[in-house]
């Protein structure tokens, strides 16, 4: 089984948008190795002839008539916002010049 390096974990943390200290990365790389070895057991029985199941129910698309129904007011929707301005969420810059 492939072992995860500290750099691999750092890359996963970047993808998952979680800043991590060097200590955390070291610790997690060790733990991931142990956990991945244990969970890799699924490969013993997951043969080509077995169909995958993603959900316990036969899912179908659910629609409703396209009617305007009561929903959250903008005040309520913004009530938990870390920052807001003019009835909108205020967010940090998305298209940074410096990066």
């Amino acid at each position: 089984m492939s072992t995860l390096s500290r750099e691999d974990v750092a890359n996963l943390a970047r993808l998952a948008r979680i800043e991590m200290t060097p200590d955390e990365l070291d610790h997690l790389a060790t733990e991931m190795d142990v956990i991945l070895t244990a969970v890799a057991r699924v490969q013993e029985v997951a043969t080509a002839d077995v169909k995958p199941t993603s959900h316990p129910l036969p899912l179908r698309n659910v629609t409703r008539p396209d009617l305007v129904i009561p929903s959250l007011s903008s005040e309520a929707a913004l009530s938990g916002a870390p920052a807001k301005e003019d009835g909108r969420f205020r967010v940090p810059q998305i298209l940074g010049e410096e990066s």
């Binding site: 699924v42 490969q43 995958p52």
Partner: peptide, 15 residues
């Protein structure tokens, strides 16, 4: 395929 895909197959076998 090796991880999530295999786990989904195990789910079928458990069902």
């Amino acid at each position: 395929d090796a991880y999530y895909g295999s786990a989904q197959k195990v789910r079928t076998l458990i069902m």
